[in-house]
Amino acid sequence: MTFHYLESAADPRVADYTQLTDVHLRKLREPAEGMYIAESSRVLRRALAAGHRPRSFFLAEKWVADLTDIFEQYPDVPAYIGSAGLLEEITGFHLHRGAMAAMHRPAPVPLPELLAGARGVAAPEDTVDPTNVGCSKTPHRSRIAVLEDLTDHTNVGAVFRSAAAIGVDAVLVTPQCADPLYRRSIRVSMGTVFQVPWTRVDPWPATIEQLKEAGYFVAGMSLGEGAITLDELVTQDHENLVLVFGTEGEGLKPETDRLLDARVTIPMMNGVDSLNVAASSAVAFYATR
């Protein structure tokens, strides 16, 4: 593999890595350019294991030996190497987690395909050969999370980590939700964002009707009037369940609230009215697993 040694922060070949600390710029630029940044060797390996394709690698020379096996797998992908100071000048922060990679952003998964996968059945357009045992799929109980307009990348990453750990089948994010593939979201999720199927749904909350038509009971985590407890929801034992999580400040949108099958609350003690959305999602995922 040919390594490219950087001598200037203005090198146009590493434009993917410039101004990584500018959240507003990156959240507009990365989806538009069809890419995202995988930060740290561990995250990079998880992205590649999930089948994502690298555009380039970006690292200090001391990390080259640790990633020799990766470079051998992708001999045609350029690897840009520079001093710690130069890399910091390019990105805007000190790299101390090994390598970075600019990755091709995978195409969004159509909602019907994602729901079929969550249910463990063939997608509507699939043709299954009944003579091929490997093609058969057994439907199973399904759990899906919806993140409505969560703007904090840390919370988004934490929810994905809990979803992966507790076996949530898929995550849906609304149009105004933070990008699960922003590097902070990926880092907080420990790369599990690559393991949990997800897609962005639009329009929202009209998608709720589509979820209901697919056989899901849609419950919103809410402090609203008429809410049942999480224990009561568990007792109802829904085969296919969607849990919707709103913003910490405003909660679920009124138009979303009107479409829910149920409002659900986690009973609190000691004068605490609610949990952080990342914590509440972990509790809800575990209770309804």
Rank of each mutant, 00 (worst) to 15 (best):
T151E: 15
G92C: 13
V159Q: 03
N276H: 03
F160G: 01
K137N: 02
S280A: 15
D179R: 13
R200T: 01
S222Q: 00
E232P: 02
D129G: 03
P203R: 12
L115C: 06
A65D: 08
R289Y: 01
R55D: 09
D22C: 10
A170G: 06
I266A: 06
A122G: 08
V272S: 09
A9M: 04
Q73T: 12
D126F: 05
T151C: 14
Y36G: 08
V64C: 04
Q210T: 09
A79K: 02
P254D: 11
A287Y: 02
S41W: 06
L230E: 06
P180F: 14
T131N: 13
L275W: 05
A101I: 05
A9L: 02
S189V: 08
E7F: 01
E7M: 03
V283L: 14
D169S: 12
V77D: 11
R200L: 03
E248I: 08
T229W: 12
A107V: 04
S142E: 01
G120Q: 04
D76Y: 03
R258Q: 15
W198H: 14
Q210A: 14
R55H: 07
G167K: 10
A164T: 02
A60L: 05
R187N: 08
Y17K: 11
A9V: 02
T154W: 01
M1Q: 08
A206E: 15
E72S: 11
R46C: 03
L260F: 08
D169V: 03
L243A: 05
T247A: 15
A49Q: 13
P110Y: 08
G226E: 06
E213I: 04
E213G: 10
A123M: 00
D76I: 02
V173Q: 07
A123D: 00
T138E: 09
A84I: 10
